[in-house]
Amino acid sequence: MVHLLQILINGLASGAVYALFALGYTLVFSVLGVINFAQGAMFTIGGYLTYLLIGGAVGANGLLAGWQLPVSLPFWLALALAGAGSALVGLGVEAMAFRPLRQRNAEPLLYLISSLGAGVVLVNLVQLLMGAESYSIPTSTLAALPSALALGGAQIRTVQVLLLLVATLLVALLTLWLEGSRGGKALQAVAEDPVTARLLGIDSGAMIRLAFALSGFLAGVAGGLVGLSVSIAGPYFGIGYGLKGLGVLVLGGLGSVPGAVLGGLIVGLAEALVPSELSGYKDGVAFAILFLVLLLRPQGLLGKPVASKV
């Protein structure tokens, strides 16, 4: 029998990844009121960059076949740099798909399409360069750490524990920064009311760029972590996670940071509790929960109710 503690840690670990992902969506949503559908592509890019930076070689397909970086960085450094790379991609997405529309006060629907287009471009660029095969980040990159820990009679993969720790750390840092620093307060002010924020001397354009960079970073790190704990299942693997992250986001409540974390943990745990003989249904769990919650509580678990204006 699989130990309950093992199920719990697995659930929390995958929930933490969903939470990271949903936080990225939330940051952009809170400042712009729109969803960035290219987020899944940034997750993909984070995974591939991590793989390349630890010195992994490109497979036989794709333009870069056989190529490999001359250096091989330790995993943590590679993960941080991959996050930074995804943050840059996030800035690029903002400049290409969002800023031109923002300058014209376009309706939200258009952002959805243009960001999706950006995602299609990025994912296919990765496919063109690195081929459609899947890559895995060997856990041996973690060097000295044992592959599993014995905890109260359960065997727990070290990777899962690390995933949980890193995600918790990032969420804590983000919350501290949002609540405690000038920059974080400025971002919240833009989220609350961009016009007033501008009157108060806050550069809302810079804050929006910051939100994109941060969400790119979070998505990139999540991609690297999933690459380590599962594998990088081809360039489209971010899209599936992106869709589930979207579900998590709405489940917790759009624009709510604690909501994104709560939603991630609920979905992660619920998926881990699906018995193995029904594992085929696992991917439907998040959406079934989401659908029920939306019908009972349309603003999500921790979202503010939307006041209808008269």
Partner: peptide, 26 residues
Amino acid sequence: VLQLRGIYLAIATIALVEILRVLNLN
């Protein structure tokens, strides 16, 4: 479903399509 508005309606319908896909797969 149609009591939901805007992006919430969009995501609820995406959820329906995904649930249907998982059911059909199994």
